[in-house]
């Protein structure tokens, strides 16, 4: 669902309610606004899909790391300093020529924060959550992704505290690319599973 942008004047009812609640909780002594600033800063500037892209690109260039990521993604991510809130139990699922993975949370909006940041609006939306489990190919089509008929689709519904990360396939034409160069091809959407990683042509 969309919201009126509360940068406009006068402030929306939602903006006024939020301001009133924060001010009340500060007055009660239970909220420190500096902690709110810190949390917002973390997810706006430090924790986001670049972390996941780093893991995927590393897996593309380092077979031992790829194995470690599939074996225990929490430990593999921690080994390169990635982890934390809403990523305490990470599982990586690998796309192959035969299998395509898609992640959803039908009950709410569970999402692997340490590797992807906070979820986009569409991931939290009812239409995505409803359709991903019942008709995943139509969801992929909405993102312009069309799989061959013989590709097996695996959908992961995040009903527990296990958080899923899709490792997309390495695009063709990237032989000899460095991990840093490869990271630029690993989009957030490709790690949710709605798109493939970008091709070098698309990225150029």
């Amino acid at each position: 669902m969309t919201h009126p942008d509360d940068h406009t004047e006068p402030p929306s009812e939602f903006a006024l309610e939020v301001r009133a609640l924060e001010s009340l909780l500060v007055e009660k002594g239970v909220i420190d606004p500096a902690a709110l600033d810190e949390l917002i800063d973390a997810y706006e500037h430090r924790v986001g899909p670049r972390n996941g892209a780093h893991l995927v690109a590393r897996a593309w260039t380092d077979p031992a790391f790829a194995d470690a990521l599939l074996d225990d993604a929490t430990a593999a991510a921690a080994s390169v300093g990635i982890g934390g809130l809403q990523g305490e139990h990470l599982v990586a699922v690998a796309n192959t020529p035969e299998v395509h993975n898609l992640v959803v949370c039908t009950l709410c909006s569970c999402y692997p924060w340490p590797v992807l940041g906070l979820p986009p609006a569409w991931y939290k939306s009812a239409p995505y959550r409803a359709r991903a489990v019942a008709d995943p190919r139509s969801v992929l089509a909405a993102f312009g992704t069309h799989l061959a008929d013989d590709v097996e689709v695996q959908v992961w519904d995040s009903t527990s505290e296990i958080r899923y990360l899709v490792t997309p396939m390495r695009p063709a034409g990237t032989d000899g690319w460095s991990t840093g160069e490869l990271e630029t091809l690993v989009t957030r959407n490709s790690m949710i599973g709605v798109e493939p990683a970008r091709s070098p042509q698309a990225a150029a």
Binding site: H3, H7, F14, P49, W122, R188, V194
Partner: peptide, 28 residues
């Protein structure tokens, strides 16, 4: 439940400052 509306991946983390505040208030 309506139409699925994909995005580009370039949008802001929060749709507004109020959304950001609610997120942080909930965690805190």
């Amino acid at each position: 439940l309506g139409r699925l509306v994909p995005d580009t991946g370039d949008e802001a983390v929060f749709g507004s400052r109020s959304q950001a505040r609610v997120f942080a208030l909930t965690i805190a």
